[in-house]
Amino acid sequence: MKQILDHLYQHKTLTKAEASEILKQIASAAFNTSQMAAFLGVFAMRPVTLEELSGFREAMLELQIPIDTNGFETIDLCGTGGDGKDTFNISTISSFVAAGAGLKVTKHGNYAVSSSVGSSNILEHFGYRFSNDRDKLLRELDQSGITFLHAPLFNPAMKHIAPVRKALGIKTFFNILGPMINPADPGSQLIGVFSTETARLYHYIYQLSDKAYTVVHSLDGYDEVSLTGTFKAFNRAGERNMIPQELGLPTLQASEIASGKGIEDSAAIFMNVLKNESTDAQKSVILANAALAIHTANAEKSMNECVDIARQSIEKGSALKSFEKLMQLNA
């Protein structure tokens, strides 16, 4: 590791092969805690390159436990985290709205590292039992339209770096990697990222895949469509700037989509949205993100149609039924 750090501290970068090999060494416990923290610190001070990210991703995919979804066409709604905005669980709630709208969702997530409440935190709070048992996951997907893939169960080799990430409490390249290594390999993805630069990295890599994808970044820093201003959307057609009014939705204030003071506040917002009892702002931001997911999987539908489909999922109780069924299966 000393040679690697010397190389990086000279403002040099890694090749794809070097990045892949280093991540495999991290997984095999070749380095101590201080060395891993120093390595992660490099990427807190400068952006990861396309070559490095491709190498890290290649190693993670090689090391992880994959899940065969038995022919289900699935989608993932996932953010990188690391935007420092401390919003409520937008991508997780939007996943249930998408499931209520008829999509099959393989939601990939983890405990919070740089925010207060991650997708794993909130679902565990409601009683969801993490598992990598394929029969359980497929039963959930079939009956509730959604299943949850708790990242550590599918990436056991990363157990050595997890405590270091938690102790650092800052975003690292692992935030960027998370959405890229969904073990179900969904055919469609809505990905929220914390910077335009990161969005372009995703765009370059996903153009080489056969996935239907949309990468979003709100220009005021959010790793999702926050409706607080202009956001960028990247897909196979290219990139474009969009404003909330194009979705028929209002511009919001940051305070209107804040998470509250902890898990209890987050859980209350979560259930209020699914029960159609939330504030208009909370509902609107969920509609925006769920609609983009629906559009990603159904490109022939207009964005306005997709917003209406998402709205019906909430207002007719389909999203809530999806959630309740998932919890019943975990009782």
Rank of each mutant, 00 (worst) to 15 (best):
H150L: 10
S91H: 14
L63N: 12
E73L: 03
T87Q: 08
D68A: 14
F126R: 12
I65M: 03
T106W: 01
L61M: 04
H150T: 11
A98E: 07
K85Y: 05
F72C: 09
T87K: 09
G82S: 06
N110Q: 14
A162G: 02
L153W: 13
F88E: 10
G100C: 07
R57V: 06
F96I: 07
P163R: 06
L137R: 05
R57M: 08
L77A: 06
F72K: 10
G109W: 02
I93G: 10
I67K: 04
K85A: 10
G102P: 01
V113L: 15
L103Q: 00
R165E: 09
E62N: 02
V97E: 08
K166M: 04
I93Q: 06
I161L: 06
A151L: 05
H108C: 14
K104P: 03
N89E: 14
K107V: 00
D133G: 13
G81C: 02
E140T: 07
Q64G: 06
I93R: 09
E73Y: 01
S114M: 05
F130C: 13
Y111H: 14
I65T: 09
K166E: 09
T74Y: 12
Q143Y: 06
K85T: 08
S114N: 03
F130Q: 13
L123D: 02
G102E: 01
H150N: 15
K136S: 13
K107A: 00
A167C: 02
D142M: 09
I65Q: 03
H150R: 09
A98W: 03
L103R: 01
I67C: 07
F56H: 00
S95F: 13
G100W: 05
S131H: 11
G109T: 03
L61W: 03
I65E: 06
F154M: 03
K159F: 14
S115N: 05
R57E: 09
H108A: 13
K104C: 05
G81L: 02
S120R: 13
G81Q: 00
Y111C: 11
P152E: 09
A101K: 00
D133N: 15
A112Q: 12
E124H: 03
T87S: 12
D135K: 15
F154N: 04
I161F: 09
C78A: 15
S115F: 01
N89F: 11
V117F: 02
I146Q: 05
A167W: 03
S116Q: 11
A167T: 07
S116P: 02
N132L: 06
F130G: 11
K159L: 12
